[in-house]
Design a protein around this nucleic acid. Structure first.
Length: 621
RNA sequence: GCCGGUGUAGCUCAGAUGGCCAGAGCAACGGUUUUGUAAACCGUGGGUCGUGGGUUCGAAUCCCUCCACCGGCUCCA
């Protein structure tokens, strides 16, 4: 960490203390949780008992903070023996601090979650804690490891901007506190810039663009978390899925189909029921007593297709893919636009392989994912999501160990830029998560490849080995897009609704200057000609000014707009108006209609090969 | 699910402290205009103010229920 970063972090952390000072001045009965520095600023968890802070109070708190800052109070560090620290917490009526200190005394450390921002006053790495570190500024004293800036005058620019609920110690069974967020930067300019960025992010919010660009919608009558895709949104879905199909087919996957409902017992056998039972939709049959559920995922089904006939080592790898809609009864508060929905379309794929084939299959998938995200112009990072020592994983720990080792080896071999993350594995095995970085620098886990020894075992999957014995295949779970809904939410924001030619729901808008017959005829035949080439064109012959039609096309973020008037009819040439983000080389003179359409058709095909585009075309017929 | 907030026409928003038939712009529709590269002009229709209940002589406005959405938390096979 550079000195600058250290200073900024100290500023933010100090601002958290200053905010707490202000809150304590205004609400002397306030009880405090933790208050670390975070990206872009800081927060403090506060419990005001019956009262609540609302954003109307921000001004008041900020004014109080400014007083503290102007007072230029020194931050003084001092140590207290643990027992005295506990006494301090009790006497000052800070039960949350007391709880942390008691844990510290009993266990010598606290769980990683509480260390969120290294806020605690842990004095040493020894298992026995003797002294605890405190910081004091003015009348406010807090248990804290520091570091802080020298005094409250040196904290840069800040602004409070968000208030939210947060469970004490991140545990939903514990009481909820109010988390007061502030932004903090070295300079006012950086702070302003941060809020400007927030505004920009808001402007490209996929929920806003989804409505503006007519991609998807929700209906109260249908239900929350159940998106309805319009024709335009469906074009995006179909094209992206076709692309994923193409890449997976090249990896060796073959398409299969499975039903939307299933007996609950399938998931009891797979282990999902135990883990996710409360998130399954239940389906009742009026004919049988079977307990049915809406399918939350397809892997057990694919396992059953695998199990439908005896397999030889020569048949492996057996690879299935399915673009399945699955249903998960997500908690209402977790739903969010397209990124968290209850009907989820996955490009779900499973390979059943011999152990000696793991490397090859995983490598193919890594290459496919790299190609896909390269095409989509998103850079990729990789998380190796491994198990932790918690009790939530199924299967033999030794198998886990070897699976994790082989993933690590593979990641190295493929020269991936990877990080190992403990405790992020699926319950059945470790995974490589592909982290896509969007144009705002945000990171999203989209594609994934996961090793699974548990489900083959639970379903008793086997193949006959060379020596005639029955062996268990390894199951590899693969998704390139992950969930198409979630993918779209990220991608729409990544491109700010300006889709590349091959994906744009409308590629060319043809606007007429007037309604002269020759002009309308010319435009109409141009549109027909383009459609024959597989392009997506719309014709605008409305009785409006040219300016207005241009604007409508710009707002719809259509890549090419053609204005057709007498000039074009006479010359048989068009002068395309090109969306600002699209790079063009060559001159901007008028070109032959035929030439223009063929060039665009070619461009539309450039990134994706013919197979995927045709797969889409066929689907439309 | 939890904490806090919001819900007025298709969209963006006005409607202080409860009181004349709830407004505007854009969009839609009709007409005039036949338009040359980011919004022509005139007119018309459209809302039982998210839902159900309550308080009141009177509720978009106050209270409660439910629903949805927003900011977070928790969770994410």
């Amino acid at each position: 960490m550079s000195d600058n970063n250290q200073h900024l972090e100290a500023c933010r952390h100090s601002l958290a203390h200053i905010m707490a000072t202000a809150v304590q001045n205004l609400w002397p009965e306030a009880k405090f949780g933790v208050g670390p520095a975070i990206d872009n600023g800081f927060y403090y968890d506060i419990d005001l008992g019956d009262q609540t802070i609302s954003d109307d109070d921000f001004g008041k708190i900020e004014a109080e903070m400014k007083k503290v800052i102007e007072a230029n109070q020194p931050f003084e560090q001092f140590d207290l023996p643990i027992d005295e620290a506990i006494k301090w917490a009790q006497e000052t009526n800070q039960p949350y601090k007391a709880e942390l200190l008691n844990d510290l005394k009993r266990e010598g450390t606290t769980s990683a979650k509480d260390l969120d921002g290294a806020q605690l006053g842990v004095a040493s790495d020894d298992s026995k804690v003797e002294n605890v570190s405190f910081y004091r500024n003015g009348s406010f004293t807090d248990l804290c490891r520091g570091p802080h800036v020298a005094n409250t005058g040196d904290v840069g620019a800040f602004k409070l901007y968000k208030i939210a609920g947060a469970y004490w110690r991140g545990d939903e069974t514990k009481p909820q506190m109010q988390r007061l967020y502030g932004a903090g930067f070295e300079t006012q300019e950086q702070l302003d810039n941060f809020f400007k960025q927030l505004e920009e992010a808001k402007a490209r919010d996929h929920r806003k663009l989804g409505k503006e660009l007519d991609l998807f919608t929700f209906s109260d009558l249908v239900g929350s978390g159940l998106p309805l895709f319009t024709p335009r949104g469906t074009i995006l879905r179909e094209l992206l899925l076709a692309y994923s199909n193409k890449l997976r087919t090249d990896c060796g996957f073959k398409a299969v189909t499975s039903p939307h409902i299933t007996k609950k017992s399938l998931y009891e056998k797979s282990g999902h029921w135990e883990k996710f039972g409360d998130e399954l939709f239940l389906v009742e049959s009026q004919e049988t007593d079977d307990e049915m559920v809406l399918k939350p995922m397809s892997c057990p089904h694919h396992a059953q297709i695998y199990a439908s006939q005896p397999r030889s080592y020569r048949d492996l790898p057996v690879m299935y893919m399915e673009n399945a809609v699955v249903y998960r009864d997500e908690k209402t508060g977790e739903l969010h636009g397209l990124s968290r929905v209850r009907s989820i379309t996955q490009d779900d794929s499973h390979a059943f392989v011999r152990e000696d084939q793991i490397e090859e299959v995983v490598t193919r998938v890594i290459e496919a994912a790299q190609e896909m995200y390269g095409t989509l112009q998103m850079s990729l990072k990789f998380d190796l999501s491994f198990r932790s020592n918690e009790d939530k994983y199924l299967g033999d720990p030794e198998l886990w160990e070897s699976a994790q080792n082989s993933l690590r080896e593979l990641a190295k071999k493929n020269q991936l830029d990877f990080t190992e993350v403990e405790g992020e594995a699926a319950f059945y095995g470790p995974k490589i998560d592909f982290i896509a970085v969007d144009s705002l620098g945000r990171e999203w886990q989209l594609a994934t490849v996961q090793l699974d020894f548990v489900q083959p075992d639970r379903f008793g999957l086997t193949y006959t080995a060379e020596d005639g014995t029955a062996k268990q295949p390894v199951m590899i779970h693969v998704a390139l897009l992950g969930s198409i809904e979630r993918f779209l939410s990220v991608y729409i924001e990544h491109v700010a609704g300006r889709f590349p030619i091959w994906l744009a729901p409308e590629q060319i808008r043809v606007a007429t200057v007037n309604s002269d017959e020759s002009v309308v005829n010319f435009a109409t035949s141009l549109v027909e000609q383009g459609r024959e080439l597989g392009l997506r064109l719309e014709l605008d012959t409305s009785n409006e000014s040219v300016g207005k039609k241009i604007r409508a096309s710009e707002v719809a973020k259509v890549p090419y707009t053609l204005v057709i008037g007498a000039k074009e009819v006479e010359a048989g040439k068009v002068q395309p108006r090109i969306r600002s983000d699209i790079k063009v080389d060559g001159n901007e003179e008028a070109i032959e209609v035929d030439h223009f359409l063929k060039t665009v058709a070619n461009e539309a095909r450039g990134k994706v090969n013919k197979t995927s585009v045709h797969a889409y075309d066929e689907h439309q017929q």
